[in-house]
């Protein structure tokens, strides 16, 4: 029993840690694009990678200050959004989906390629770029701190605190936007583009704004992740993260301000709890070794997540915060 409480504490830390912040910022971005505007961005991780590498390359390779790195990362994300949006946003939704998924995979392969090694340091990645950021912490980052039975290093705590502040600011921004006439226009675009065009709105511009905003939020997520892990490696930015963020968004409830935030916390909590819990149960023989070995746990936890999502979609398709009436409406 004590071990399960330990597992719970570990899971709680995961649900509050910078990984959850990373996922939450990705999911908030996707919420703007998919939840409100109806754009299918299947390459959100590419924006995160540009954010993380924006800092990493600027600081480690070019010797620029941390803040310049942040600006570089954000600009790179804006440029990527414009490049992806310009040709595809006039077309049907599927084209953006194809372009983004290809861009995410292509950029990762480019960053880890030999020819890019002088800049990105290839598969070994970059590190040692977060000193300036950690030094900003108002507390002693060399100490360890205990919160609610979980142990945090000072630097980790600082990244996490800044991360949640970013999540709060992003949520406030989204809240302000979606209750404004701007939000009404993008939600209408999700419902029917042509109707919005016929009422004199430049649909293309709104879609572009949503794509850029979502991409910038994703870049912030990537920065938090790079600072949290103190390294930037192309293979940290696998596109599976995009789909994990979609799952978190659907779990929390799409087109709700807090949906992606709560969804991401819960998602990491469940993944970590399943992981540690199963290992504990295998370790003390509750689950026989023949049925499930400790090496299978990493895969099994995602099976459990998948099962959970299926049950969610059957019994609560609107997610945690969604409005069932709204979700059940025929989208025409």
């Amino acid at each position: 029993m004590g071990e399960l409480i330990d597992a719970f504490a570990v899971a709680l830390k995961a649900g509050l840690g910078f990984q959850a912040v990373f996922l939450a910022l990705l999911a908030i971005g996707i919420n703007v694009q998919f939840g409100y505007t109806g754009l299918l961005n299947f390459g959100q991780i590419a924006f995160a990678m540009l954010g993380g590498y924006g800092i990493a390359i600027s600081v480690s390779q070019w010797g620029l200050p941390f803040w310049v790195g942040v600006v570089v990362g954000l600009l790179a994300a804006v440029v990527l959004a414009l490049l992806l949006g310009l040709p595809t946003l006039r077309l049907r939704a599927d084209y953006l989906a194809i372009a983004t998924i290809a861009a995410a995979e292509g950029l990762r392969l480019l960053f880890r390629s030999v020819s890019a090694t002088p800049v990105t340091n290839g598969t070994r990645g970059l590190s040692g770029f977060n000193a300036e950021f950690v030094a900003l912490a108002p507390w002693d980052t060399a100490r360890r701190y205990g919160i609610l039975g979980t142990q945090w290093s000072g630097a980790e705590l600082w990244v996490t605190a800044v991360g949640w502040l970013l999540v709060a600011l992003a949520s406030l921004l989204i809240w302000l936007l979606v209750r404004s006439p701007w939000g009404r226009v993008v939600k209408s675009i999700r419902e029917d583009e042509d109707a919005v065009r016929a009422l004199g709105k430049n649909v293309y511009v709104y879609k572009m704004q949503a794509l850029v905003l979502g991409g910038v939020l994703g870049a912030f997520g990537g920065m938090v992740y790079a600072l949290g892990t103190a390294s930037a490696n192309p293979d940290q930015y696998q596109n599976a993260n995009t789909f994990l963020a979609y799952a978190a968004l659907i779990l929390g409830g799409a087109a709700r301000v807090l949906g992606p935030v709560i969804g991401s916390m819960l998602m990491y909590f469940i993944i970590q709890f399943a992981d540690t819990g199963l290992r504990t149960l295998i370790g003390n023989g509750v689950i026989p070794e023949g049925l499930l070995s400790a090496t299978d746990v990493a895969q099994i936890r995602f099976v459990l997540i998948g099962l959970g999502l299926m049950l969610l979609l059957v019994f609560r398709p609107q997610g945690i915060f969604g409005d069932r009436r709204e979700v059940m409406l025929d989208a025409r």
Partner: peptide
Amino acid sequence: LSRLTVLQNMLLGAQGQKGE
């Protein structure tokens, strides 16, 4: 626009909205 309320549908039609 199915998942907007009737009133929101109407408000979308107004031209020259600053908040857009």
